[in-house]
Design a binder for these strands. Structure first.
Lengths: 244, 244
DNA sequence: GCAAGGCATGAATCTACAT
DNA sequence: GATGTAGATTCATGCCTTG
């Protein structure tokens, strides 16, 4: 297997497993009796926080190595995992630029009424190390698209991935449990990359990053452990190229 | 010194030092030549991440000990520190309910145009441990005050602390660099405490928590290391009681 | 008295270049 | 690499001055 060169990637977008720790065997039902299908795949199962931390440190270390000094890394998460991930990123010397809040507008309500509705995910945006000042940030473009005002870390409001964009199998079952919306990844690439840049997604899943990168004329590399998702992503990308 | 009893506190609100790591000697100036006054107090200075982590684990361990199984703890922070704090909270066994986003509406812009405007702070809301189910959460009240809709973790929008509410000395200099808005603390107490409950603020600062607790008929205990802030908070509370 | 405009300021890991 | 200095740049709000 060919090894990535050091300092070779312009932008990394990572949506790692969230380590949700849902209790086994419990079912959450909506008021109409229908069942909420949880993320219960093997790739989100870890024995302990320690195992999750070790997994996290390993892939982050690799990402930091291949990231250019002018590049940036984006890591998504929710409260289950993002604090552990962020702490490990800091320990590795990655230097935070912002934590951006993706506010959803149609998230699932809290059925048990014992907490606030989970209506956001957090994106940590960082450079390779503290000394990296010359990173790509398309400030003027974002400002223009934001009514002439500087973009804020709370200005990212997009719907979750649903409707025709959501990939489903022949039975209508969603093909990937955590497919991310195209607009979210588009915003990441428009913020911090240029035409011709190399984009890496170490958890490619259904291939959203690849599709967006292709559409915006960025080069891309995706990594995915589950063979069925690699096939899914390949089909999706081929479809996109043909129908465009 | 009398020691707090185990399991004796109904609600903890903690706004710890953020460990900002601003470069020494550098000045950030506005276009008109005026200077941005940074948070550069000794209490926010730590030698390293390790020292900050150790400090954090110590105070959190104490908070967890005194927190009732029916109580909750709220911890505020920004991207500089909140990820480390959250990871340590999870390691201690504190169980997260939500991460709530306080969206500001009038935060300082990013003068250098190299990042997004920092326009939010994060509040982690947690219970003593995973098994605590019977915590205080005034769900119906919040729903009523939110136009009949379930409150979301992104529904907290308050201005920063300025205007007449902001404490200043005779020269107009702010008395505390990080005074929090009354409405923010009010929202915390209205969410997760009842009349007569005991509220603990381990970083009392200018005493905002005490004033709000008094106004909402909660009992309170505040801890503060800096003598000048203790005096400031005492004066503020006396003023509030007299003028009410 | 009222409206318009000037000015101060806020938890900031905020630049580029020369020595 | 650390340090010093010149230089370019921002948004919402509220108080105060001016007309």
């Amino acid at each position: 297997m060919k090894k990535f060169s050091d300092n070779s990637v312009d932008l990394i977008f990572a949506d790692p497993p969230y380590h949700l720790q849902l209790p086994e065997g419990r079912r959450l039902k909506r008021g109409d009796g229908s069942e909420v299908i949880p993320v219960a795949d093997g790739w989100d199962k870890f024995e302990s926080y320690e195992e999750y931390d070790s997994f996290t440190e390993n892939w982050l270390r690799g990402c930091q190595r291949v990231l250019k000094p002018t590049g940036t890394i984006w890591v998504m998460g929710m409260y289950h995992n993002i604090f552990r991930v962020g702490k490990i990123m800091q320990d590795l010397g990655l230097w935070f630029l912002n934590d951006v809040i993706w506010v959803k507008i149609d998230a699932m309500p809290n059925f048990k009424c014992r907490r606030f509705t989970n209506n956001h995910e957090t994106l940590i945006w960082a450079v390779k190390n503290k000394n990296c000042k010359n990173y790509t940030f398309n400030y003027e473009f974002l400002k223009m698209m934001n009514d002439g005002r500087q973009m804020k870390d709370t200005d990212w409001t997009f719907p979750i991935c649903r409707g025709p964009e959501r990939l489903r199998d022949e039975n209508g079952i969603k093909s990937h449990p955590t497919q991310k919306p195209l607009k979210l990844i588009q915003q990441v690439l428009l913020t911090a990359s240029r035409k011709g840049d190399l984009v890496l997604d170490p958890f490619m899943g259904s291939g959203t990053t690849a599709v967006v990168a292709h559409a915006l004329h960025r080069n891309w590399v995706g990594i995915e452990k589950e063979k069925r998702y690699v096939e899914l992503a390949n089909m999706r990308i081929e479809n996109y190229i043909q129908t465009k």
